[in-house]
Structures are given as C-alpha cells and as structure tokens.
Design a protein around this nucleic acid. Structure first.
Length: 501
RNA sequence: GGGGGCGUAGCUCAGCAGGCAGAGCAGCAGACUUUUAAUCUGACGGUCGCAGGUUCGAUUCCUGCCGCCCUCACCA
C-alpha cells in the first residue's frame, strides 16, 4: 500500500482502538520515572519497587506468548519484557496492536533478563499517542539532507548524532551566558523589527507596518542599540539574538543566524581579547569537556592566550607584499594568482587587502589567532589605531580558518562617527546606500563612555565545537526554499489583514 | 547568478547501450515463551521529481522547470 493508505490505516487503527475503549490520545500520563534515572538507580541497587516509564516504542520483538520492546525517552532506552500470565491480559493485547513509533507508558518491576538486559517486566501498559505515519528506516536512519532539514523531527527521532549537536548547542549558549553573567554583564533584548537598520553592511529583510504605513526592517546586527544602552549608563550589556541578512545562502550562511554582542564600558581591545578567550574557552569546555579540539590530524588548542598578529604582517608573510604600500596591480595579481574570479573595475585598497587576506591568510589560520589592524574603511564603527592610523583598533579571532569573533575599541567621538558613516555611505557599491542612523549619532552626542565591544557568531562557534561542516547542521530549522510539499509557498496578505494587531 | 552532480516504494538503496519496476527495513496476515538489526511463511506496496519532445515503445535519450548537494562568485 502507498503512503496515503498507510496513513489511512493508521488513522483506522486509532479509530478501532477507540471503539475498544482505548483512547489513542489520552491527556494524562500516569506517574513515571525518567528512563535514565531508572537505569541508574537499578544499577545502583536502589530500585526495589515497580516503576512506570514513558517513551517512544522504537523496537518490537514478539515471540508468540512472549514479547520484547525498546522504549526510548530523552536519549535513554530501556527494554520492555512481556510474558503472558505475568502481564495483565489487557497489556498483552495492547502490545500486539502497537506500532513502532507509538508513545507508550509501561509499568512493572525492573529485572534482568536471561541475557542480562535490564528490562521492565511489564504488568500494565498504556498507549499515550498513536503514530499514523511510518518511521524512517530504523537502522539506516534518515540520510537525505533535504528531509533532515525540512522534517527535523524525523532527523532527531532516528539520528542520535543530530540530537547531540543541539545538546552541544545548548551547552555553548549556557557557557556564553554564564561567563558574561559572572562578569556582571546585563542581558538585554533590543528590537528585531526596526524602522532603520545598521551596525553592519548587509541587505536587510523588509516588511510593511500597516498601522504606521511605512517600511520596517529586520535587524542585521545588534550593535547600534547596545551602544545606546552604554550611553544610558548600563555599563556592561550583552544580547544573544537572531539577526537577518537578505543575502546568499550556502553552508556557512543562513538568512537568520544567532549573534552574540557584548559591550563593556571602560574596556578596550585588550579587554575584548581577554573576554574572547574566556568565552571561547568556556564554550569549548562546557560543550566538549576540553579546551583542546581534534582537528584533522592534529588538534586546536583553545586554552589561550592567543597570539595577536596585525593583518598586514600576515599578508607580508604569506605573499611578500606590503598591504598598504605595494602597488595595486601587485595586489590584484596576487589575488588572481590565488583564484579570485571577478575584480571590480576600480577596487579600493581596502577591498584588495580584505580579499587578499581572505584568499592568502584566512585558510592558514588554524590555531586561534587575533588578527588586528584592519583597513580603516572596512571598520566604520571602530576607533582609529593610534599607532597606525590607516587601520582600525579592531581584531577578528580566527579559528580553523574561520572568523569567530569580531571586536572593536568602540568609536565614541560623535563628529568622527558621523563622518565615517557618511564616508561609508558614499563608498556603498552599486548605489547601495547604508542609511545613517541619526538617533544613534544623537545618542553618541550625549556621551558614550570609552568601551570595547565584540560580536560572536554563535552558529559558527557551534559548528567548530561540534565539527559540523554546514551551518544547516547546527540550526534546528534552517531556511529552505519552499517545496511543493510545504503549505502554500506564497500567501497573499491583504493590506487590511491586521486582525492580530 | 555560473559550472558539475543527484532526484526510483514511508526509509536506505539497486536497476535501465529504450522493451511487464527490484531488494532490505517499516506497514499488513500468520507461526513462535529470553529476544535485543529476533527468526520464519505469505500477500501488499510505484505518477521512477514535474512538464514537454524523440520513438512502435521513455524510469532510461533530449529540452525546460522544481528541489537538494558540491563548487565558484556575491556577502565589511
């Protein structure tokens, strides 16, 4: 039978169960003990009473008057053991009617079978929720990337490694928060829906606010609002939240992604380096139990402190060129030599340096490295570095060839900030203009304390710590093109459909 | 956006120099009192991604489209 028939027959089973006074979707679960605790206390010899367990039936081995099953819950699994004459007759009858994937509750003493398997010797059995669709193959799992991302619930059901990634993700978030909390940072929420976007160079998603009849944007960064809070006297703040960039998707870019930004008054680049080291180290230890990560044939040591290298020094080492002094065409040639496709008609020096760095240097930065002194034009929100005014007081932390942290000694001179942002707007390529946020500049005019700030790409840090090659593997529901299987791909929303307020 | 690959049963995969569409698991019917990928028997299960074209005949060849993967480009 085809899928429709299988589902129909599942629904039919649910109907028949109801006819026999067995509710397929009861509201209440009888008292139960989590399976991992049952196993632990049995092994410790502390379990002398019958227990209730609840979970999904993931295996079923029936032998006529004897039957075994496996119940899984929260990553733990216990065997069920049913004997005619021992189990309640209704339990025996119900077990026969169960399908793989049903949620069930079972109750009985915990025993060891002849082969030594810890098992619940079932006396009572109850159906908690009936499955009506067939599960993916129980041994081969679900491999198809598309299905794993579109139907993550199936992926989580049958691929334990996938569940582990998201448990690690939670551990990383926990470590980041507790590190910042312990240092006296205040966690805040700033608007996702904004009348004006800023804080990065990226195309925003747009939407329309009906009541105000004007365009709104989804935020592309957290920076400008968090800095307003420094002006307001919140001296250490951070936010962990979704940002949205309306650009290409690939295995390191999802249109919505999780960013951590933290700002600390009276701190500076040195302070941000120390904080970066603490955050990354804490995340690694919480996630993996160690600050040393296996990587390729060797390992990456996140113990710190990490070396600090000016960008131009690294470029000179790898290419022999002086990033700021060598002629343009030498840089262009060095880029082309390394496989750069198109070069814009009149590439700026900053563009060339950035490109050459990403081609020649980035892939070589396996061990954690603070790269400092970026071209000033690429860093409109950072202070000028006094020792080299062509560059910004900025660093990026690279690990395994990827940017993990980006930090500035924050520019707080309102006049210079206005100038830099307006320069940036003029540099905007192909008529793309980055709007200047006048309220942000007004806030700076009220005085922002000297401060250091950093941004950390949470998804990419999780990729690093879980050894996942694609950002889609660390986001529960990554963005996908609508497929015909999904609900209508495009819903027309009437202009006056503002019923939800 | 460019280039390459892939799309066959609910899942994992075969197959097809053009000739009735295959397996394992799951599901269905049955046998079985210590299994743990239980075993055994039987029956069922398909718009071969979608739409065209070539052909006596297309899952197979061609074109277009859709989706996914890889890669390049874009992305402070």
């Amino acid at each position: 039978m085809g899928l429709e028939h299988t589902v129909a027959s599942g629904l039919e089973k649910a109907r028949l169960l109801r006819e026999d006074s067995i509710e397929p979707y009861p509201e209440h679960t009888p008292p139960r003990t989590p399976i991992d605790i049952v196993l632990r206390s049995f092994e410790a010899g502390e379990l002398n009473e019958p227990v209730g367990v609840a979970g999904r039936l993931v295996a079923k081995r029936a032998h006529g008057k004897l039957a075994f099953g496996d119940v899984a819950e929260g990553g733990a699994k216990v065997q069920l053991f049913l004997r005619e004459g021992s189990a309640d007759p209704s339990a025996v009858a119900l077990f026969r009617r169960l399908d793989l994937g049903d949620w069930i509750w079972a109750h009985g003493p915990v025993i060891r079978t002849r082969t030594g398997e810890v098992s619940v010797d079932v006396r009572d059995l109850m159906l908690l929720s009936k499955i009506v669709r067939p599960l993916p193959d129980k041994w081969k799992g679900l491999k198809d990337h598309e299905a794993r991302y579109r139907q993550r619930y199936l992926d989580l059901m049958v691929n334990p490694a996938s569940r582990a990634v998201f448990e690690t993700r939670a551990a990383v978030l926990r470590a980041l928060r507790s590190t910042l909390d312990a240092r006296g940072f205040l966690e805040v929420d700033t608007p996702v829906l904004q009348a004006l976007y800023g804080g990065a160079a990226a195309r925003p998603f747009t939407t329309h606010h009906h009541a105000l009849d004007r365009m709104f944007y989804l935020r592309i960064a957290l920076e400008l609002h968090l800095k307003r809070l420094l002006v307001g006297g919140m001296s250490k703040v951070y936010e962990i939240g979704k940002c949205f960039r309306n650009e290409g998707m690939d295995r390191s870019h999802n249109p919505e992604f999780t960013l951590l930004e933290a700002y600390e008054s009276f701190s500076d680049l040195d302070g941000m380096m120390e904080l970066s080291e603490a955050l990354v180290r804490a995340a690694a230890i919480e996630a993996t139990g160690s600050a040393r990560l296996p990587h390729g044939d060797g390992e990456i040591d996140l113990g710190g402190p990490f070396p600090r290298r000016p960008m131009a020094d690294l470029i000179r080492e790898r290419t022999g060129l002086d990033a700021f002094e060598s002629p343009d065409d030498h840089l262009v040639e060095a880029c082309a030599h390394r496989g750069l496709g198109e070069i814009p008609p009149a590439p700026s020096r900053a563009w060339l340096i950035d490109k050459l760095f990403s081609l020649a240097v980035e892939p070589t930065l396996l061990q954690p490295t603070f790269v400092t002194n970026h071209p000033l034009d690429l860093s409109p929100l950072a202070r000028v570095d006094r020792s080299d005014p062509r560059t910004a007081a900025r660093f990026e932390l690279f690990v395994a060839g990827r940017e993990v942290v980006n930090a500035y000694s924050e520019l707080n001179d309102p006049a210079e900030q206005r100038r830099r942002l307006e320069d940036q707007r003029r540099l905007g390529d192909e008529g793309e203009t980055h709007p200047v946020d006048d309220d942000f500049l007004r806030a700076l005019e009220y005085g922002m304390p000297p401060a250091g700030g950093l941004g950390l790409g949470v998804d990419r840090l999780v990729m690093l710590l879980t050894q996942q090659p694609a950002i889609q593997d660390v986001i529960l529901f990554p963005h996908m093109r609508p497929s015909s299987d999904d609900s209508p791909p495009h819903l027309e929303v009437p202009d006056d459909a503002d019923h939800t307020g």
